[in-house]
Amino acid sequence: MLTLFAGINLGYLVNLLKLTFPFYLLLLVIMGLFNIEQVKLLTHKEILTPLFSMPQGWPIVGGLTFSQEGTLYGINIILKTLTMILVLPLCIFTSNINQIVIGLVRLQIPYKIVFIISSTLIFFPQLFASAGSIIEAQKLRGLDLEKMNLFTRFKVYSTVAVPLILNAMNQSQVLEVVLQSKAFSGSSQRTYLQETKLTSLDYGVMASSLAFWGIVIICIFALESENLPGYCTIRQENLQF
């Protein structure tokens, strides 16, 4: 939600969800059907509440019961991973890369590593653009990916990697020369055009988030003593999301 409010392209989020959806479905099924022992242990219950049963005749899943607790646990894991995935675009798209760079440098992280991070951030959009034009080139050779079966499609997709990697390697060689000619040595001894100053707003945000997490952690411990860990973790994730 927060990610959406921050004005990040909706299409990007939809794509992200599309990409991760199969994994989540798989997670949900596994948790609901198979992960009986761990869920029992976590909820301290002997018998799980059944939601529905699979018909006997089905292979693998035949006769298994889809449990309510397992489903909740699955949703919990999904929310956890989603938080991690969504925090990244929130951070990258809403901040100026220069500010991130200088922030990291002031955290005493070696400039070499900071430079790798910042050039990765610049490099990725370029990589996607070049992957797009490679796929277009394949279409131009008459390869209709939409009409292929999954196996052939995968085989064709894997060939995209060849020009992608070779081009990237080629570019990195050029980049090496470019950086040398710009006196880049990777040493942390350098000056910066931008300055980051922490304003009172920044301090306020930091303090309030610290306080928030403090309260959450206290809540967890308080609730844990009441033997409701499953409920608690789910609540916590909802808060984050």
Partner: peptide, 9 residues
């Protein structure tokens, strides 16, 4: 298309 290097698989 323009860049031959994007088209070699």
């Amino acid at each position: 298309a323009q860049n031959p290097d994007n088209q070699i698989f």
